[in-house]
């Protein structure tokens, strides 16, 4: 089945958008790379990718006046996917290189991964997704992680991770040394993945397809 959807990927010069674009095109989507506020306001499906530092990312969104249209899109209940830095920006604030305010869509903070022997920061590589401890096995049923088996490995490249205030916003957790960190978030139709679904092989593509079918 062809999905033929129009997807708006926000291009705010935080890393390359090539892989994200190709992953959506893989499902026959028409992908628009945009950096103007008015074009974001018109979008049905919005994707915020990004690599780099939190403060720089927010500052670029602010300078380009992209914060308001993003918040308006979320307010309307339309599908939104933040990837990597794009997920972290959903939170209230970050401790990366000083304290910076985020979009505040998901209450909570972004903190550095804990340093401990045997666990290297940045965390680069494949690691599994798990259902949060207090939830049961049907927890992913109505989310973009439906049909994704527990402990399916995804590709991560990051040094910081989200710490949402409310457990209901934590969609999955991933082990790091002796700790767990929040590897994806959800609030209504707003999703965020710390991993890169566009770089996580067939299982990652499944997540993108699920997102398009919301």
């Amino acid at each position: 089945m062809s999905l033929k959807q129009q997807v708006t990927v926000i291009d705010y010069f935080a890393g390359n958008t090539y892989s994200v674009t190709k992953a959506f095109e893989h499902f026959d989507c028409q992908v628009d790379l945009v950096s103007q506020p008015n074009l974001i306001a018109d979008s049905d499906i919005l994707v915020l990718p990004g690599v780099g530092a939190f403060g720089d990312g927010m500052e670029t969104l602010r300078q380009r006046r992209l914060i308001e249209p993003i918040l308006a899109h979320v307010e309307r209940g339309r599908p939104f996917l933040g990837i990597c830095l794009g997920m972290q920006l959903l939170l209230g604030s970050s401790e990366e290189l000083g304290v910076h305010d985020g979009l505040g869509i998901i209450p909570g903070k972004v903190r550095r991964l804990p340093d401990e022997p045997g666990s290297k920061v940045p965390h680069v590589g494949w690691a599994g997704l798990h259902i949060p401890e207090e939830q049961d096995s049907s927890y992913w049923k109505d989310t973009i992680l439906r049909d994704v088996p527990v402990d399916r490995d995804m590709y991560f490249v990051h040094s910081f991770a989200a710490v949402p205030d409310h457990t209901e916003h934590i969609m999955s957790r991933t082990g790091f040394g002796t700790h767990w960190f929040c590897s994806s978030v959800r609030k209504g139709n707003v999703y965020g993945c710390q991993f890169h679904p566009e770089k996580s092989g067939p299982a990652g593509l499944q997540i993108i397809e699920n997102f398009l079918r919301l």
Binding site: S19, Y155, G201, L205
Partner: peptide, 8 residues
Amino acid sequence: VAENVFIP
């Protein structure tokens, strides 16, 4: 090549 490669 990258167009069809969804891994690092």
